[in-house]
Design a binder for these strands. Structure first.
Lengths: 163, 163
DNA sequence: TATTGTTATACTCTATAACTATA
DNA sequence: TATAGTTATAGAGTATAACAATA
């Protein structure tokens, strides 16, 4: 029987492996010029959706401001995100994508979706109809769960790409 | 009705969201004394179940042998895992938990399981038995899929993770 | 004094490439 | 030559603690 404990263990095993596979597929199919980690792409996506200050971004990602400052550093160094002091409260820093940042985000997002879709199609093609339906039905439950739970910290309109 | 396209779309929606929740939970579930990370605990658990050589362990975790060698280093340095050459093929190294390793694993397993399942229980507790079984069965398919395709979708020479 | 963010330091986990030892 | 594994090097991402600037 599938008790909560077994279910949790299976979630912990399958999800990280699936994401590692996706990360690998994306990484090796993209041009080096636009080298972006999945995490960086996600941060860029959040900021493209709406500019934020650092504290908000850290809270969204559920990490310390210190960690987020470091992560943002990379994007700023690549000139994809601009740090500007908030005129209303100069302790705060407004984080906003540059034009180049938006262009990279849009291009990479399309590329990533195509890569993911291709990989998933290859994998799912190995399943027969019954297996695919079984997987689908299980994912429907997961989808329902996620809808009721606040594990997601990215607006739903943002295509999700993550760590 | 669950064709591959629908299934892929559902995977792409649910997995990254799930991973964000799991990632945050795992980061904050780290014990205070920092004696053992969850990743290390998982490796120790795999080896307690059955000794492996490094290549098997790396393939199981879907990372490069190089990365796994580094990860195992930490456990060996703490004397929780022993590296011994395989008598049958001395290029290979058999990884096996020490007595201390087994003791630490058992003790930590309880603590971590309690902490982590408490977090997942909040989610999974919203499901009834039928739904939980449905999710579990779907994840079984995913697990099987990952076992069959890990070397196909990610070339062994080039797995990568960016988390 | 409290808040916001950065920097210093250190750790885990990852990758690629070069290397050693064995088959 | 080919395979199994390690080491060298690098980078992302994380944390705590000390710090500066602003409110």
């Amino acid at each position: 029987m599938a008790d909560a404990e077994k279910c949790a263990a299976l979630l912990m095993e399958t999800m990280p492996r699936m994401m590692r596979g996706l990360g690998a597929a994306m990484r090796h199919a993209r041009p080096d010029d636009d080298a972006l980690t999945l995490g960086q792409l996600r941060m860029l996506g959040v900021l493209c959706h709406s500019p934020r200050n650092l504290g908000e971004l850290a809270a969204l990602h559920n990490v310390t401001p210190s960690s987020m400052s470091r992560t943002v550093d990379v994007l700023v160094r690549k000139e994809w995100v601009a740090r500007t002091p908030d005129p209303a409260d100069r302790r705060q820093v407004i984080l906003e994508p540059t034009e180049a940042g938006r262009a990279v985000h849009d291009a990479m997002q399309l590329h990533t979706q195509q890569t993911f879709t291709a990989m998933l199609a290859q994998m799912l093609g190995q399943l027969n109809d019954a297996e695919r339906t079984q997987l689908y039905d299980g994912l429907l439950i997961l989808q329902k769960l996620l809808a009721n739970t606040s594990t997601d910290c990215v607006p739903h309109s943002q295509p999700s790409v993550t760590e």
